[in-house]
């Protein structure tokens, strides 16, 4: 059980160099397994309730495919930039890693901005949280994802701020790595949201 800040220059996978790192890595995968069930439940509920619009507007009446497509692209690119960041981390290039993670954070912020804009549009068109079973399940599913994006932004930002002091070590590398993993996960979830909520919503009409 090593706790020292070992230099990682010779390590191919610094995030898995220590037992703590391996534990973190595996534990985080399990955590994502749990998150999958969480989102699965949200998706299933949304699918069961998406036609139950009561007296409110339905999804297809509101959804703008352009906005959500842009959102999707932004998040996909941010996933790519986080890959670059992890590659830089493995090469022990601190500056490059920081740069790519900051780009990831920035793209995440753009995504969140678009989502807030989108929600405010829907609100003004009469789709409140209490309007119908559809609206409750829609906002809860997409909002939970948005909350995850927000948490990811906070998390990666914190790590980056600390990275100026701590650099890339066998202690910090697993942290960067799982943060990137988390970011991929919320990206994948978004792809499902885009398909199930928006594309199927519009096509299924």
């Amino acid at each position: 059980m090593s706790e020292t800040h070992t230099s990682i220059e010779k390590l191919a996978n610094p995030e898995k160099a220590t037992l703590e790192g391996k534990n973190k890595f595996l534990g985080f995968w399990f955590f994502l397994g749990g998150e999958t069930v969480l989102f699965g439940t949200l998706f299933a509920t949304f699918l069961a309730l998406r036609d139950k619009v009561a007296s409110g507007p339905s999804g297809p009446e509101l959804f703008s495919i352009t906005t959500t497509f842009i959102s999707t692209m932004i998040l996909l690119v941010s996933s790519l930039t986080s890959v670059f960041a992890v590659m830089a981390m493995k090469d022990n290039k601190l500056r490059q890693m920081q740069l790519w993670f900051w780009v990831t954070v920035l793209l995440g912020l753009c995504f969140l901005g678009l989502e807030i804009y989108e929600f405010s549009e829907y609100l003004s068109e009469g789709l409140g949280y209490k309007t119908s079973a559809f609206s409750s399940s829609f906002y809860t599913l997409v909002g939970t994802h948005g909350g995850h994006v927000f948490f990811g932004i906070l998390w990666i930002s914190t790590l980056m701020i600390a990275s100026y002091k701590k650099g890339i070590t066998t202690v910090t590398a697993p942290k960067y790595y799982v943060a990137a993993l988390y970011w991929h996960f919320i990206d994948v979830v978004w792809v499902f949201i885009f398909t199930v909520v928006y594309l199927l919503g519009i096509l299924g009409d």
Binding site: K52, K130, A133
Partner: peptide, 25 residues
Amino acid sequence: TVGLFFELFDKIFGANFFNATNGGN
């Protein structure tokens, strides 16, 4: 966790997951 959130949101924020009048089930 998700189920409890649904119930909480129905209870305090007026969501409609389980409220049949607004389409809940």
